[in-house]
Amino acid sequence: MMLEIEALQVRYGRALILQGLDFTVAEGEVLALIGRNGAGKSTTMKSIIGLLRPSQGRIHFNGQDIAGRAAFEIARLGIGYVPEERRIFTDLTVLENLEVGRQPPRQGRPAWTIERLFALFPNLATMPNRPGGQMSGGEQQMLAIARTLMGNPSLVLLDEPSEGLSPLIVQQMAAAVRALKSEGVSILLAEQNTNFAAGVADRAVILQTGHIVWQGSMAALPGEGEAYLSL
């Protein structure tokens, strides 16, 4: 298994946000974390990338224990993080944003280059010198993904990539996720939009107030997933 999470607990002050999660992501797999606002999807991602310190539990990436390590070390091991709020550097241009994400290539995998990323997101190619703050939400989302890919990650944590985007851009996002999958990149995808998840994910985990209430193959989800989400 590429990513193994066991009994993961995270607290904010006294509140127990994640109450013991267990799940895995296999090499080349797309796993959807599905849940409503506040279910703990973003918290899970932040604790994997090291921006939040888990209070208990183990997080193994390619056999190494990464729980509690510094974010930059985890990122260098090959985990990329695309936050929900995108967190584009608004003062920096598209090219500069990509530069911040650049890390050395990894063995056995073709490195991402600016050219390849511009081919994946043609919109970005038209605005290499535009400051991040002057881009639309969809463009920022593309840039956020491209910036993370510059680090050549083998696992990407993708937090609600379809949120607040127009249907056309959502389709582009889905295509991009499938393109990544075909490159052999594993993806942990947080989503409220089950339709989007259904289009790209292999398996799904349903989170509710910090617990896993269901997990299984994406094909088994429709209907059942909606039922959990409407609770």
Partner: peptide, 17 residues
């Protein structure tokens, strides 16, 4: 470039390695 990025969002810079 890294410094300017960190000025704006240090955690994100760290999460990018």
């Amino acid at each position: 470039t890294l410094v300017r990025a960190a000025t704006q969002d240090r955690d994100m810079v760290s999460a990018l390695g």
